[in-house]
């Protein structure tokens, strides 16, 4: 699996371009005008930029017909699939660290007064991981082109449907008070369950010959 991670590492590094940096800066600029939005914007951007790298490696694998090579290696399907999830976890950890560092710098420079840097870093970690929990099985199932449609459904359609449902049922989510610890446990459990389902779908798809 280490070899596969090194391969993905090379692919990510070789395909990182200045466009990413430019897009990142363009998106972050409004945050400087409204400092209260800087940390939420930063955490989301870091999560999406880093999270999308797994999909980039999957798309490169598809283009190179890497699968043909992969099946001749002494690697199990489990190792092959786990490689992508481990990469996703590494990128999520990097996104956590990046938000902590950038948020810390912004606070030191008195750009923000926010005390919730760790909270937003955690959010960035979860979004990065969640992104790949959708994208990895979707790419294995439908190919890298069509998998974006699945992502649109998850990111665009599902939250809209949820919002409409809450409106129809006249539930005001802002009036509901959540216990932070309860929320954290729910979030963590939900992530574990989703991760297991995502991995299972990917593994079963790759196992079929």
């Amino acid at each position: 699996m280490r070899g596969l991670l090194i391969k993905d590492g090379y692919l990510i590094l070789k395909n990182l371009s200045m466009i990413y940096l430019a897009a990142f800066l363009m998106a972050i600029l409004p945050g400087f005008r409204n400092p209260s939005m800087l940390l939420p914007l930063l955490s989301m951007l870091v999560a999406v930029v880093l999270g999308s790298q797994v999909a980039v490696t999957l798309s490169w694998d598809e283009k190179a017909k890497w699968k043909t090579m992969l099946v001749s290696f002494p690697l199990s399907v489990f190792q092959e699939v786990a490689g992508k999830y481990v990469l996703s976890l590494i990128l999520s950890i990097i996104s956590f660290i990046a938000v902590c560092l950038l948020g810390g710098l912004a606070r030191r420079a008195n750009i923000i007064m926010d005390q919730n840097i760790i909270l937003f870093a955690g959010l960035s970690f979860c979004v990065c991981l969640l992104y790949n929990m959708i994208m990895i099985p979707a790419t294995y199932l439908f190919g890298s082109g069509k998998s974006r449609m699945v992502l649109i459904i998850f990111v665009g359609v599902l939250p809209t449907v949820a919002a409409l449902l809450l409106r129809t049922l006249r539930i005001d989510i802002t009036r509901i008070s959540f216990d932070r610890r309860f929320l954290a446990v729910m979030l963590f459990s939900g992530m574990i369950i989703l991760l297991t389902i995502s991995f299972f779908i990917s593994y079963m798809k790759q196992k079929v010959r």
Binding site: K7, Y10, L11, K14, N15, W60, D61, K63, A64, K65, W66, T68, M69
Partner: peptide, 8 residues
């Protein structure tokens, strides 16, 4: 066919 990634 060479199935290694062309950027490597």
């Amino acid at each position: 066919e060479c199935c290694f990634h062309t950027c490597l």
